[in-house]
């Protein structure tokens, strides 16, 4: 028995619209890749820092992650591949509450309302990645600590992630298991720069003032343990 809020219905309509738009990937009439990205990606992704007063509303209305600091965040190789074969990173969409329905068995994500990311040709993925890798805002926040992966027991690392740190409540460390409100982390190692992961865990709100992620006040050693786990998951 699904109950739909008016807000949800509105989101459904927007979702359908976005999907329709997504079917034509890059505008034919725009010339350079920069113009194409400005035209076709800005509907879901922030390409410039917007210093708005109401950051909470901005976060709630987001449809995709901001890209104006793409180069500070993502691994280039991963991006180029992902754009050609996009797999869902956030099981509950960019803002879970816009995709949540209340049922008799608890709240669930209504998959039908989730947006599909357009698939790019190899050539488009290459030029889009090259352009996005020039967007390096916030690079001064990247972690400066030296980090090199340590030998780790997979079982202990998994327990640390789920039980001791509680990350799994919001993030998946395997397909189909774990929370759905945050981005999955089983591809975090391939997807994200290590300097970004460390910096984001240490202080999420520096990257996004209204990040939904809590700052767990972890010392470097604990942050590195989590990164070791992502590495095991990614290999």
């Amino acid at each position: 028995m699904k109950k739909m809020t008016p807000q949800h219905r509105h989101k459904l309509a927007t979702g359908a619209l976005m999907l329709a738009m997504a079917s034509s990937v890059f505008s034919a009439n725009a010339t350079g890749i920069k113009e194409k990205i400005q035209q076709d990606c800005a509907g879901c992704h922030a390409l410039h820092e917007e210093k708005k007063d109401d950051q909470l509303t901005q976060r709630i209305n987001r449809k995709g992650p901001p890209l104006y600091y793409a180069a500070s965040k993502y691994q280039k190789e991963w991006m180029q591949n992902w754009l050609q074969d996009p797999q869902r990173i956030r099981p509950g969409g960019d803002y879970f509450a816009n995709h949540t329905v209340v049922t008799d068995e608890g709240d669930v994500i209504d998959d039908a309302t989730l947006l599909k990311h357009p698939r790019l040709s190899a050539a488009d993925a290459k030029s889009a990645t090259a352009y996005l890798m020039t967007l390096d805002s916030k690079k001064e926040l990247l972690d400066k600590q030296a980090y090199s992966a340590k030998k780790t027991s997979r079982r202990m690392a998994a327990m640390n992630f789920s039980k001791f740190k509680g990350c799994q409540a919001c993030h998946r460390d395997e397909e189909d298991y774990g929370g759905v409100s945050g981005p999955e982390l089983y591809t975090a190692h391939q997807r994200l720069r290590p300097e970004f992961i460390a910096s984001y865990i240490r202080d999420p709100q520096q990257w996004e003032p209204r990040s939904l992620m809590p700052n767990r006040h972890l010392p470097d050693k604990e942050i590195h343990k989590l990164m070791d786990y992502f590495k095991i998951l990614g290999e």
């Binding site: 669930v108 799994q168 409540a169």
Partner: peptide
Amino acid sequence: YGVNAEDM
């Protein structure tokens, strides 16, 4: 009964 509760 939030969306994350099932696997917690």
